[in-house]
Nucleic acid binder design. Structure first.
Lengths: 403, 403
DNA sequence: ACACGTTAAATCACGGTCCGAAGTAAGCAT
DNA sequence: ATGCTTACTTCGGACCGTGATTTAACGTGT
């Protein structure tokens, strides 16, 4: 029942441009020759399309590779500074805005710390807008040269109707107390740039897929383990969104019906067993006044010193985490599971073997055998990169349309 | 990163044929006019493509609708007897083979009971092949008029490499003790018909989506509640398969880490709390020697008589079932959850309100609000129809290629 | 220096697609 | 019979990708 819409003959060209752009972007400089091989397009079409891309300024020649007795191949690449991207990370403690070129090299950034419980919506929006202004000013990039602004926020993002320029974007977040915040409308009042908003965990997952441990996988789940727990599901190379793009809310999956009380108000959520906040609280021996990160680091240190309470707590967390990962394996059948997030990267080296074992014992044999469980390779800073990935993805998919 | 492959201009035509065929198939008789409206194709193209389909015998005119003062519209439909389909259900107690026309009207069927623990592979394959022979003989349909054989089996189905005619299909099933059974190869030895194999629960889900409670939904999960528990996930109109098509194995999701022992050997699986087998066993008051269905019916009757142990057991099952459905809602964000399977249909009317309440209290507010939870409308016999749906789906997607 | 073989890229005729406008068919009303 | 309305068909035009052919840009051997 997969209904493609109407397709005219021009869509073919859009498709060809898109494939070639994708290949050039991800598989580095390539010659027209190689491009033809891997894309399946005939040499003639490659020449033709590449010519178009070059005259649009989207692709440029960059050196050549010598051959033994033939015309050398001319290498092509996506012009890095043909356009720019802005990524915004609305985190727990700060708003971070960064400007990238097409190759996702960071050209400028602007950080604005957020005071405790300072997630007043208007304030956050203001910080985002001034941040955008700052990075543009710092680099001298024109607004017209920016493909769009990608934003990673905590909570669930409702995308609204497509085609109305992001105006319908609404954010729901129980943790920072945003209830049906019309972020699209609020941002639109301050900028004309195209807007793309998604959950921060999902943008981090996207980054991990494109540039981290997920490279090459078509089906994967990025499990994000921080203060809370989330997941980003990639199915067949694209993020799995569900009906209203809130798919992948893993943290409040039940691992123990009727069990521990979670901050979401329900009982037995995964997050209540393995989230950093829950772990530090349950341990109860973190230095008073320390931050969550410091607390978790202290817990880890205690476990390394073989203090029984810490060891037991982490062992239990690994058990639950592994069991919940087994659920992901059974339900999504991915080829790879990637554990990311700051807490995941901190505890990962110690917990990974136990997590793998637990997953093996709880998951069905066959899908488990198809899945590898690995640590992420990107730190939490990658949220901005991941956010910038949203407009970039649109750019590549559309075959390189500048706005 | 959605890479479409090479596309030539002829693929456009294939696409157009496919859309028109889909529309005609699912939205009943339509005129060329309406076809143009809903498909977005121009009138000219519709005429052109329909003409082609008619001369291929795939579509036929069927009456006309009068108008007030204009040329009447000629209605079109997919020719029902242009081709045929075979569906096979390898169930717990029998092998059922049925032959359908394109409209999925059952023209003949053949049932072969399976003795207890009679899932010897060679025997089952033999029954399938003789069944196929029987329905063909009964109806006088030629092999060349059969688009393919769809088979629903218990367990996980590995599809193998595409394009090698189903030869790579391998089935893994812990319940009937099939370990890496090369079903594709075994069947291929006895027939030349194109083969399509999938898990029986998934084919039932497919049937429910096309002709049952799932009609019109693009994102749904069909939860199948029988002796065990399974699920079929539909994302954007197509079955979600995962890397090796084993996605949706919901029954062994953990609802209570370290809890009850499940027949799969692990602990705390959903199936151990709500599967019919587990329920009857835990109740312990079923008439001795009764079948699982009789036992469950007795349990239900006892609860209707307000016997405390039965009432409590069913209430607990509803709680766990609802919690597990909440997980599905959080993870897949469907617009609809459909509860099917024989046990689901039996207990559904009594349990549904409690299940809905439990799902509401365990799921996140936002995605829960987007989801309705309903009972399936198709009995377990629909497995054969669902199986026949597999070659049919291929037929429609390919734009009507007869083999 | 110069012709030759080799490989990469550009060019072009061809078959094919969809679209949109103009033309034709088939009813109803007067 | 004449006009009017609506459904369908036909046909020119703008494109597209393919695959063969031509042109460009190298090494090499003489």
């Amino acid at each position: 029942m997969a209904e493609r819409g109407k397709q005219t003959v021009r869509d073919l060209r859009r498709g060809s441009r898109s494939t070639l752009l994708h290949r050039l972007y991800f598989e580095g400089p390539l010659s027209r020759q190689e491009l033809g091989q891997i894309s399946g397009l005939s040499g003639g079409s490659v020449s033709n399309v590449v010519g178009e891309l070059i005259s649009d300024g989207l692709v440029e020649e960059c050196g050549s590779v010598e051959s033994d007795g033939g015309r050398p191949r001319i290498l092509l690449q996506v012009t890095p500074d043909r356009a720019h991207l802005i990524g915004v990370d609305v985190g727990e403690t700060q708003v971070r805005v960064a400007l990238f070129d097409l190759a996702l090299t960071e050209l400028a950034a602007s950080d604005h710390p957020l005071s405790d419980h300072g997630h007043d919506v208007d304030h956050v929006v203001e910080l985002m807008l001034t941040g955008i202004g700052e990075v543009l000013k710092q680099t001298g990039v024109q607004e017209s040269q920016v493909l769009g602004v990608g934003v990673g926020v905590p909570g669930i993002v409702e995308q609204g109707e497509p085609g109305q320029d992001g105006l319908g974007i609404v954010v729901h977040s129980q943790t920072v107390d945003w209830d049906a915040v019309p972020l699209g409308r609020l941002l639109r009042a301050g900028t004309d740039l195209p807007l793309y908003v998604d959950n921060g965990a999902k943008t981090l997952g996207q980054a991990e897929m494109w540039f981290g441990a997920g490279q090459g996988a078509r089906h994967a789940v990025v499990a994000l383990f921080g203060s809370g727990v989330g997941a980003c599901v990639i199915a067949d190379g694209a993020r799995f969104r569900g009906a209203t793009s809130s798919a992948g809310e893993w943290g409040h999956t039940k691992v123990h019906v009727g069990g521990r009380l979670c901050r979401c108000g329900s009982r037995g959520c995964l997050e209540a067993y393995v989230g950093a906040e829950a772990l530090v609280e349950r341990w109860g021996e973190a230095p008073p006044g320390s931050s969550e990160k410091e607390g978790l680091a202290a817990l880890l240190a205690a476990a390394e010193r073989d203090e029984p309470s810490a060891v037991a707590l982490l062992a239990e967390a690994a058990e639950y985490f592994g069991a919940a990962i087994a659920d992901l394996i059974n339900l999504f059948n991915p080829e790879r599971i990637i554990i990311g997030g700051w807490a995941g990267l901190l505890l990962g080296p110690r917990l990974l073997p136990a997590v793998r074992d637990a997953a093996t014992s709880y998951a069905l044999r066959f899908p488990r055998a198809q899945t590898s469980i690995e640590l992420g390779r990107l730190g939490p800073d990658a949220v901005t990169v991941g956010a910038a990935t949203l407009p970039l993805s649109r750019f590549l998919d559309s075959g390189g349309s500048i706005r």
